[in-house]
């Protein structure tokens, strides 16, 4: 079973603060981490490999050179090999161009049965890249997977989370899954894995290494453009209600009269 995991390095939201004067994001000292949802994808990939006794987990990321750290961390968590897809030509990629670039890299890897992605990235929140990759590769997809109930060389039966519960979906392989938090509890890294990660040499692919249409990369390959970035008025703390529980309840019921009815 050969599995590809697509991950993204994102700023750690616990560290993201807003400058109260300029009202902009303070990026200084903000640590980069693996997108939280991708951690579940990594864990599930390693579990599938263990379940199917054998195979290879390849982790890929598109990003700046320092995204190599995310690949190393993924290797310390059990992935076998990492590939960094990095080139200045990718700058300004929207989800269309990003999924195109990643699908070109996956085509180059060639031999795969399962592609796993986190359901979305915590900095962009689009949830578009996973389905985008499956569309570019023209393979089936199941999104919001909360359980891989059965998996064999040819097919898988999975549970897809919906607003009301879940769907049970059967799919032939290869297939792309995007996963939600409920699917597993990611393991801790192992010391031996960390040592392996330290000495691992992730492959580095640039635009020239991919058989890709140059006009479909980066900003030029992106249908969308950001025209304005602004900080919303930060939400201000409001009124503090004081008094006994009953008085407060009466006051609040009065204040919320229009909202609750």
């Amino acid at each position: 079973m050969n599995i590809i995991v697509c991950i993204k390095q994102v700023p750690n939201t616990t560290d993201v603060r807003i400058d109260p004067v300029t009202n902009t994001l303070i990026r200084d000292g903000v640590e980069s981490v693996i997108n939280p949802f991708d951690a579940y994808a990594i864990e599930e990939a390693v579990r599938i490999k263990e379940r199917c006794s054998g195979g290879k987990v390849t982790v890929i990321t598109m990003g700046p050179p320092q995204a190599e750290n995310a690949l190393r961390e993924a290797i310390s968590l059990g992935c076998d090999e990492g590939i960094l897809i990095s080139d200045r030509k990718f700058a300004g990629s929207d989800t269309w161009a990003t999924s195109y670039t990643l699908s070109a890299a996956i085509r180059k890897i060639g031999d795969y049965d399962v592609i796993l992605c986190g359901k979305q990235a915590s900095d962009g929140d689009t949830a578009q890249v996973g389905p985008g990759i499956s569309a570019h590769l023209d393979i089936p997809q199941v999104t919001y997977v909360k359980k891989i109930a059965e998996i064999s060389a040819e097919k898988a039966k999975v549970e897809r989370m919906t607003e009301e519960g879940y769907d049970v979906v059967e799919t032939p392989l290869p297939c792309l899954f995007t996963v939600v938090k409920e699917i597993n509890t990611p393991r801790m890294p192992s010391l031996k894995g960390m040592m392996r990660a330290k000495s691992a040499k992730p492959l580095k692919w640039t635009a020239d290494d991919l058989e890709a249409d140059a006009s479909a990369l980066g900003l030029d390959g992106s249908p969308t453009r950001v025209v304005k970035i602004f900080t919303p008025e930060p939400r201000k703390g409001g009124e503090m209600l004081k008094g006994g529980a009953e008085d407060i309840s009466k006051e609040l019921a009065e204040l919320l009269k229009d909202v609750v009815i």
Binding site: R187, M188, P189, S190, L191, K192, M195
Partner: peptide, 20 residues
């Protein structure tokens, strides 16, 4: 189990016996 999977039990044992 977590300590085992993270190789903690082997930190003081020789590499020849599977430690670190």
């Amino acid at each position: 189990k977590i300590l085992a999977d993270s190789d903690m039990f082997g930190v003081y044992l020789p590499e020849a016996y599977g430690g670190l």
